[in-house]
């Protein structure tokens, strides 16, 4: 059988394989009581080099949880996620260390990811430029000197995106709605950066509310509903089917 997902996709090697993945976690609901959340139920897919894959679905459908599992930051209950290299996750719960300055966060984030001090020093300016935060050079305030907890969520998301995206090229890049934050200029910049990263022979996963973003950025889409994979195919078709599904007023089962 031919590689189908998208007819145009180059038959690249697999970079992410999800094999019957179930994810459940317990949420404390009070003293001594827990609630079990079965967030992802038996999802399987193969992602290949050069693909850019959008994840869509209603709130609570398991998109972000699945992304965390691909990143290796969420254990699976059963099934496995196989990845090439170590995926990098860019999310919006952004401040790495809130009481430290933006500058310190850039340095510590880079060191934590395994970059060398000199590597960070040579990339520092690029990271700050990319984030678009005022750094005091043009007479405006220097936001990098402020503790990160004083940032707006958009600013923090931009800086964190800049930190993670400037690291060495990743085989797999996971983006959780980072494009939805920040102003239009930053969105354009980050979209360009994602294109660059894709061109560097990686695979990109993107969770975004905006279907326009998914259609523009991705060639393939996975539609999750109540933790199950409802549809997997070209981004245009999957988003169209999802829109049809929401327009006909069918409510997602878990809401």
């Amino acid at each position: 059988m031919a590689d189908p997902g998208a007819g145009a996709a180059a038959p690249g090697a697999p970079t992410v394989i999800a094999d019957a993945v179930h994810i459940a976690y317990t949420v404390p609901t009070g003293p001594g009581t827990h609630r079990r959340v079965h967030a992802v139920r038996g999802v399987g897919f193969v992602a290949r080099r050069g693909e850019s894959i959008g994840l869509i679905g209603s709130n609570g459908s398991g998109k972000s949880t699945l992304l965390k599992a691909i990143a290796g930051l969420q254990q699976t209950e059963s099934g496995r996620v196989y990845t090439r290299g170590r995926p990098a996750l860019l999310g919006v719960d952004a401040a790495l260390m809130g009481d430290l300055s933006g500058e310190r966060n850039v340095i510590l984030g880079g060191l934590a990811m395994g970059m060398s001090r000199s590597g960070i020093a040579s990339r520092y300016e690029g990271i700050v430029d990319f984030s678009g935060l005022p750094d005091g050079r043009d007479g405006r305030e220097n936001a990098l000197a402020r503790p990160m907890r004083t940032y707006s969520s958009g600013m923090a998301a931009r800086l964190r995106f800049a930190i993670a995206a400037t690291a060495r090229s990743h085989d797999v890049l996971l983006v959780d709605e980072a494009l939805a934050t920040g102003d239009a200029r930053f969105q354009r910049r980050s979209r360009r950066r994602i294109d660059e990263l894709r061109a560097a022979a990686g695979t990109v996963f993107l969770v975004a509310h905006s279907h326009a973003t998914i259609r523009e950025t991705c060639d393939r889409a996975l539609w999750l509903e109540a933790g199950t994979l409802r549809m997997d195919g070209p981004a245009e078709e999957v988003t169209a089917a999802y829109e049809e599904f929401t327009r006909t007023g069918a409510t997602p089962p878990d809401e």
Binding site: M1, G79, W223, R230, G233, V238, A241, E244
Partner: peptide, 23 residues
């Protein structure tokens, strides 16, 4: 073997629980 996800886009339907190839 063909990856199970490789099914072309299909219309919205029931969860694909039994659809997948053996693990």
């Amino acid at each position: 073997p063909p990856p199970p996800t490789a099914t072309p886009a299909r219309p919205a339907g029931p969860p694909p629980a039994g659809r997948r190839a053996p693990d």
